[in-house]
């Protein structure tokens, strides 16, 4: 990125490097959330609707993992994906895929735990009606997921916010390689270490703006569609 320019000039000038970085950040975080949703929603539903030994312990662990330290997740994924690690043969370390995996692990507990809570609450409300209507277990899960979709979107946004804002895992497993694994947050960290504080701050404001814009869009859609569906 050119020196002695501030963030506003970068935006106004449609700086290609900046857009590549923003695009990568969004791609990584959204992919991570998508994976976490695919795994986390069924996991949350399973925990909400089934009873098995160790379930309580699992819920406690899951809730605790909502606060997983990103650096620890990063280090763990680093050791797994490193050429010397068990998954080294895939050569994923220092690639966007590694960042997606690490962020997905970071986000998964948030989505699974919030989904578990949401679905369990709704289930206690729906249990009698659905049982009386003879709904199959799979049908129950589908119904509960669909009917709690507004709350689940909030869980999804919480997950996205965590993924988009964190720097610890992407720095470690991505390596902050220019044009390849450099995201908004690692750029901010890098510019800070270069002493380029105005640019770092400007990028930070852009990042916050993007996160707020995505949340505002989701919130608006939620209000609008909730009014229609109850």
């Amino acid at each position: 990125m050119p020196e002695s320019v501030d963030a506003w000039q970068l935006i106004a000038g449609g700086d290609a490097t900046l857009f590549a970085i923003v695009r990568l950040s969004l791609a990584v975080s959204l992919s991570a959330v998508a994976i976490a949703v695919l795994v986390g929603l069924p996991l949350g539903a399973l925990l909400a609707l089934t009873r098995f030994p160790g379930r309580s312990a699992m819920i406690v662990v899951l809730n605790g993992f909502m606060g997983l330290p990103p650096v620890v997740v990063g280090l763990t994924v680093y050791l797994l994906l490193s050429r010397s690690g068990p998954l080294g043969e895939f050569g994923l370390l220092f690639t966007p895929a590694a960042m997606v995996i690490a962020q997905a692990l970071l986000v998964l507990p948030i989505i699974a735990a919030l989904a578990r809570q949401t679905i369990e609450d709704l289930w206690s409300e729906y249990r009698d009606e659905l049982t009386a209507m003879g709904v199959s277990p799979a049908g129950r899960v589908a119904t509960l997921l669909w009917d709690s979709r507004f709350s689940l979107v909030t869980a999804l946004l919480a997950g996205f916010g965590r993924a988009a804002a964190e720097v610890g895992t992407v720095m470690i497993v991505g390596g902050n390689i220019e044009g390849f694994t450099r995201t908004m947050t690692t750029t901010i960290a890098l510019e800070t270490s270069k002493g380029n504080l105005p640019l770092a701050m400007g990028l930070g404001i852009i990042l916050i703006g993007i996160i707020i814009a995505i949340n505002a869009a989701a919130w608006g859609l939620r209000l609008w569609s909730e009014r229609r569906a109850g």
């Binding site: 409300e125 729906y126 009698d128 009606e129 009386a132 119904t143 009917d147 709690s148 569906a229 109850g230």
Partner: peptide, 18 residues
């Protein structure tokens, strides 16, 4: 089993739909 029974609860719960 899943017989042809139906129940109307005193406080029925509406699904979050129309």
């Amino acid at each position: 089993g899943q017989g042809r029974r139906a129940i109307l609860f005193q406080k029925p719960v509406m699904l979050r739909r129309s």
